[in-house]
Amino acid sequence: MPEKLSDGERGPLQAELEHLRQEHRDLDAAIDALLHLGTVDQLQIQRLKKRKLSLRDRVAFIEDQLTPDIIA
């Protein structure tokens, strides 16, 4: 990745980041709702949690790209 991103590169990354964060929040709410229902489909919850972890990894990757490296 280049040292400094242009505004044209930052915009789409920031939009994707916000989209991923929203999807992560939505999955969290869905998991909570399923857990509070009583009849819990463990396989479905496991899949949602796996997707949530995948989103978290992608969010961290994009945040690393948007945040400049600071040499200490």
Results as ranks from 00 to 15, higher is better:
I70C: 07
S54D: 04
D32W: 04
L27N: 09
Q65R: 13
Q42N: 12
R25N: 12
A15M: 09
L17N: 00
P68G: 08
I70V: 14
Q65S: 04
L13T: 04
R10N: 11
K49I: 01
E3I: 14
K4C: 13
D57K: 03
L13E: 03
E23V: 11
E16V: 01
P12C: 07
K49H: 00
G8Q: 15
A72T: 15
L34R: 08
A15K: 11
R10P: 06
G8E: 15
D41N: 13
S6K: 12
T67Q: 13
L27F: 12
R51D: 00
P2D: 12
E18P: 01
L66P: 09
R25E: 10
K50T: 07
L17I: 12
D26P: 10
R10G: 08
F61P: 01
E18F: 11
I45T: 09
L5F: 06
H24E: 14
T39Y: 05
D28Y: 09
P2H: 03
K49Y: 04
I45W: 07
H36A: 11
D69Y: 15
P2N: 10
Q65Y: 08
Q22R: 13
M1Y: 09
L17F: 10
K4F: 14
L20S: 02
T67Y: 11
S54Y: 01
E9S: 06
T39C: 06
L53C: 03
L66D: 02
I62W: 05
Q65W: 00
G8N: 15
E16I: 04
A29R: 11
I31Y: 02
Q42K: 06
A60T: 11
D7R: 15
P2Y: 08
P12L: 05
R58T: 00
L66R: 08
A29F: 08
A72Q: 12
I70W: 14
L27S: 02
L17M: 09
L34D: 06
L53H: 00
D26M: 07
S6E: 14
L17Y: 04
A60D: 04
L35T: 01
E3Q: 14
M1A: 10
L5N: 10
P12R: 11
D32L: 07
E63S: 06
D64V: 09
R10W: 06
L43D: 04
D32K: 08
E9Y: 10
L43I: 08
A60W: 03
V59Q: 02
K4V: 14
L48K: 02
L34F: 05
E63L: 10
Q44H: 06
P12Y: 10
A30L: 11
D69E: 15
